[in-house]
């Protein structure tokens, strides 16, 4: 019987993926989709009252500003640092494992929205005729709404739209 806690299993898988990326095996959207589907198939970690409460906390102005800068940052090194700082701020919030963020893309035509997978430091912009991978696809109609700054997608399946003032919409 495998007694490894589920959250550790997730973490070890992520380490492998990150290592793969470092070795130059860039993850294709397909392999990422397979990873996410595998995650979905397992019952994800349950949201505890503690993490749920932390997710309801208002996001700080620094965090909101950093996320807003994603579109305008072109230098890969600066972008990597930005993603790192965002990841650190999320870890500090203690809201549980965040798969990534999804939001409206302000790069302009043909891109409509983008996904930022925090664990993999992948930023991907999507055209309207492209489909984001499963957990992010659900957030797509939400990203169209002006009411939300971005949408958080957690490993336990929670999708939380965040308003411009940093409050959770759900």
């Amino acid at each position: 019987m495998d007694l490894t806690p589920r959250s550790n299993q997730h973490r070890s898988r992520e380490r492998e993926l990150t290592a793969g990326q470092v070795l130059g095996n860039r993850l294709s959207p397909d392999s990422l989709r397979a990873t996410i589907t595998a995650r979905d198939a397992e019952a994800g970690p349950q949201t505890t009252a503690y993490t749920a409460k932390n997710r309801r906390k208002v996001r700080s102005r620094d965090l909101l500003d950093a996320i807003q800068r994603i579109d305008t940052t072109t230098d890969p090194a600066v972008l990597a640092a930005l993603v790192d700082s965002i990841r650190a701020m999320y870890e500090e919030r203690g809201g549980g494992e965040l798969l990534g963020l999804f939001g409206r893309c302000f790069l302009g035509h043909p891109y409509v929205d983008h996904r930022m997978a925090l664990s993999l430091a992948i930023l991907h912009h999507y055209r309207h005729d492209e489909d984001p991978p499963p957990p992010f696809a659900v957030a797509r109609p939400l990203a169209r709404s002006d009411s939300y700054a971005f949408i958080e997608i957690y490993a336990d399946g929670a999708i939380i739209p965040v308003r411009h003032d940093g409050t959770s919409a759900v």
């Binding site: 659900v138 109609p141 939400l142 169209r144 709404s145 009411s147 999708i159 739209p161 308003r163 959770s168 919409a169 759900v170």
Partner: peptide, 12 residues
């Protein structure tokens, strides 16, 4: 918030 998120999530 939840009500709006629910119908916005199904927006076509």
């Amino acid at each position: 918030g939840r009500y709006c998120t629910a119908y916005r999530g199904a927006h076509v």
